[in-house]
Write a protein that binds this DNA or RNA. Structure first.
Lengths: 158, 158
DNA sequence: TTGCTTGCAAATGATTTGCACTGCT
DNA sequence: AGCAGTGCAAATCATTTGCAAGCAA
């Protein structure tokens, strides 16, 4: 809402693209303009986007290609998919590109907001999760922590 | 896998059904045999079930009715939906019927396992989450914490 | 009885896929 | 040149819905 269609080519953006390029190259994929635009769209938002969101930001991207590229980028560890249950899935840049955070998920309208926790809490959490994972012979990759409830707007309408 | 199709009518089961009945009545819904069977199916598993899982356990339940009833039970706070992203959603009994727990989600095969954390950690977590929620004027209802990674089986195959 | 529930079949809608074309490398 | 990537349209498939018949209160 407050972001331009394309990010300015600042330092952060350069780093980001270098990173994505490396990840794609590792798996013998090309960093095409379409993928570039997709990454820019995700980078330009402070919250996870749905496919309609993405296409609204970059109207010349074909929906099917966006889905295909989200899949490729997900497998390269550049994009993370967030299943909200109802209707469209949400997508955001993955961990190395976005600092570790969690989500406030509105159960009424499906809106998703980013939030961060103290390192102290995160550390404790990881510690305990690693413990229970080990107990189940489960190899942990990452955790996701969401707070479900009503956003300010929906709570007002109830 | 290790559970019978219907739970024995032990004390726990009686409590459970009394609870579900009350929740349904509150919203002027009936506790029909189909819903009874559905709750039994979910109660008889130690992990969240997909629709195919449920229909496999209770083959005489019509898929459409199961979906409708899962929805009703979800709105009554009896069932919780877990969006796994890929393919089918998973369903489990909600908090008052199942003690608070989290999930180990296998990113390879989609399997979900239940795990529990210390009360101490849970308390700290809720405390911090309430804090960030308040900051965003967000009314918290519950949190979900999943650990994503590879289950023992998939890790073996990789 | 009354109208919530159900089952079947058909509809919906997000995501995926086939295929011919485009454009990197 | 050669093959990954794209766009369009058509296909897929979990989930939802319309409607006539069934069952709980």
């Amino acid at each position: 809402m407050e972001n331009p269609t394309t990010s300015p080519p600042d330092e952060k953006s350069l780093d980001r693209h270098a990173f994505v390029l490396k990840r794609l190259s590792n798996k013998n994929h090309r960093y095409t303009t379409g993928r570039h635009r997709l990454v820019d769209a995700l980078a330009g938002s402070d919250k996870p986007l749905t496919l309609p969101d993405i296409v609204a930001i970059a109207p010349d991207l074909a929906a099917s290609s966006v889905y295909r590229n989200l899949e490729v980028l997900e497998q390269c560890g550049v994009v993370k998919r967030i299943a909200s249950g109802r209707d469209h899935a949400h997508f955001e840049l993955a961990e190395p590109l976005l600092s570790h955070h969690h989500h406030l998920v509105c159960t009424e309208c499906g809106a998703i907001e980013d939030v961060r926790l103290d390192d102290e809490v995160e550390e404790l959490l990881d510690q305990r999760l690693n413990l229970v994972a080990a107990r189940a012979s489960f190899k942990p990759l990452h955790h996701s922590l969401d707070l479900h409830g009503h956003c300010a707007n929906c709570e007002g309408l109830l």
